[in-house]
Design a binder for these strands. Structure first.
Lengths: 252, 252
DNA sequence: CGTACTATTGAGCGCTCTCAAAACCAGTGG
DNA sequence: CCACTGGTTTTGAGAGCGCTCAATAGTACG
């Protein structure tokens, strides 16, 4: 409170040696001291590999997780091995927010490819946010953002047809990868067709057929898990058909 | 911080003259002083009537709203008058959490019947949570709970058929009303069939047909908007069906 | 090179939507 | 009292999207 030495965006990037913390502290005025305190509670583990769990359904909630590199899927397992994929999480995105309330993980999280993950013990994070108002604000924003994202998915599953769903999925991946400095038109899907279908509420076969159709229509090139968007505008146009433009969540 | 005079549940109920604040302070240890401070920022307006707006899509976000009595629907309007109903909000439930991040309301909220609503200016609430750790924790829980609820809806829209969706809707209404001390088996639906269908991703006709079928099967009695659940267990059983023998998409 | 897995492609069917019309309700005015 | 209006709800018949079942093709890895 005494020396409110606000540091710049670039300083933060440097202070947060990896991209982990940028999720939390990007748009704020944090003192260097604050950033250090935040950095202190972050646990960095060695890289995880495909199939490794961050946590499983039923386990006690202790930490939030931030994807540094790689990708993670969260899913709600049901008896008999059936499951509902809830989300795919890319670098910079945070996992576990839904378990704060009950203090028990309702879903499981496993990495889709070799990934670096940071762990944020929640109780310590909570202590920290109580003493750093701008960090508290950022936590509220993160939680709120998750709600906004879920809302979009509700709209997608409730109102859109198969074609629109896959288009939305591709555009979402494109934007999120672009945000992290990766190519928005040329990327690798770390999840299987099966998982995509499960996520979008579609059968595997439908997903496959749609990829083929998009390919035939010249919207994209697809080879196994490698995707190139040839006509991003055309894909976005598919979204606009049912619901015209949505001028929403536009966070740096 | 000096005198941490923890007050009891009952004291809170009294201190919060209405049910508004119970949402925020129920499960915590707040001092009487804290509760007063929280109470001070709550704005109580005169009752609103069917069709009145709490806020509209596009407006600047300033406050959260808590339903005291009555009911509210939130929806994402699209051009052409089409809309996607995002939720129905009953007494004790909080509205507006999705707008914290962008500071702009992406959805609109209007009351379904004569309702008493409390307004919580968010900036003042935020100041308060910064000085009351247990209140901060409760805010995190509320936000997290909303995410958990959305997750359930994703599962519903992604994997369940029409029958299961309406069953889930009825059970949800029943539970939430019961939580507030109302009858879990005999209640009034303040929303139209059209709004229910919109919410569940179904056509009006499908909703109507399902009500008729449930009625014929002796699961409930329905007269216009008045519903009596005759066999709540039977309705819940409908939910479990898909999970038990789920022949559909499985990813691994 | 064989096994297991994932992805693609095809054919038929079922759930739910769409279109259409009738029934019902509340309010209004002749 | 009754017709008229506008709204919601119910009921019916047909069509289409996406699922299911089934078979083939492609890929990873021993």
């Amino acid at each position: 409170m005494t020396e409110q030495k606000v540091i710049s965006f670039e300083t933060i990037r440097v202070a947060c040696k990896n991209c982990t913390l940028s999720t939390l502290c990007l748009p704020m005025g944090l003192t260097t001291e604050d950033v250090e305190r935040l950095d202190d509670i972050v646990r960095r583990s060695k890289p995880l590999h495909r199939g490794d769990y961050l946590f499983r359904s039923g386990e006690t909630f202790r930490s939030l997780y931030v994807v540094k590199t790689g990708s993670v899927k969260t899913y709600a397992p049901s008896e008999e091995g059936g499951e509902q994929v809830l989300g795919f999480h890319l670098p910079g995105e945070i996992i576990g927010l839904d378990a704060i309330e009950t203090e028990v993980h309702a879903c499981s999280a496993r990495v889709l490819e070799t990934s670096a993950i940071c762990e944020l013990p929640f109780s310590r994070l909570e202590q920290l946010t109580a003493t750093i108002p701008s960090l508290q604000h950022q936590m509220y924003r993160l939680l709120s953002k998750e709600i906004g994202h879920d809302t979009e998915m509700l709209l997608l599953l409730g109102k859109k047809n198969a074609e629109e769903r896959l288009a939305a999925f591709l555009i979402s991946m494109s934007r999120r990868l672009h945000q992290r400095g990766l190519s928005p038109t040329d990327f690798h899907l770390s999840m299987s067709r099966h998982e995509i279908g499960n996520y979008l509420g579609l059968a595997v076969e439908t997903v496959s057929r749609l990829f083929t159709r998009f390919h035939e229509e010249g919207l994209l090139k697809v080879d196994r898990k490698h995707v190139q968007l040839l006509d991003p505008a055309g894909i976005e146009a598919i979204l606009g058909q049912s619901l015209a433009d949505d001028h929403r969540a536009r966070s740096s």
